[in-house]
Write a protein that binds this DNA or RNA. Structure first.
Length: 116
DNA sequence: ATTATGACTCCCA
DNA sequence: GTGGGAGCCATAA
């Protein structure tokens, strides 16, 4: 995996992401990439670079997610929970909100996608 | 100054 | 459907 950068003005980007996460209603989910698109690129950044790294930057924002935000409603573009220690807890929280998983752990985005 | 590092996504065999 | 590579330069230690 190639190296990647954290976004310029990382703090501001993270805060934009967090503000969006706070608006996701219960029972809905959004992929990292879409979340980053809604947050928008940092000022002065070219779209090519942004598109290449936006999803991982959104992931970086979630890694530093403040308490009180519904972090569990953010998933990957395949409709699955990104592997990590708290993945099991994330699934439990989503299921408690009525989000359904198929037999391979995927969420139906047609039903549960939050478009903003 | 140098090095390791990350909640990802797309495209093509 | 699966698996691997590319994307490209900020921060912290």
């Amino acid at each position: 995996m190639p190296r990647y950068t954290t976004p310029p003005n990382q703090q501001a980007f993270h805060e934009s992401v967090w503000a969006l996460v706070a608006e996701i209603p219960a029972g809905k989910v959004i992929p990292y990439g879409r979340l980053a698109q809604l947050a928008g690129p940092p000022a002065g950044m070219d779209r090519r670079t942004f598109d290449a790294f936006a999803a991982r930057w959104a992931g970086g924002a979630m890694a530093n997610c403040p308490d009180g935000l519904p972090w569990w409603r953010v998933i990957n573009a395949q409709g699955k929970i990104s592997p990590r220690e708290s993945a099991g807890r994330q699934r439990e929280l989503l299921e408690a909100e009525g989000v359904e998983f198929d037999d391979r752990g995927r969420i139906d985005l047609e039903t549960h996608l939050w478009t903003g």
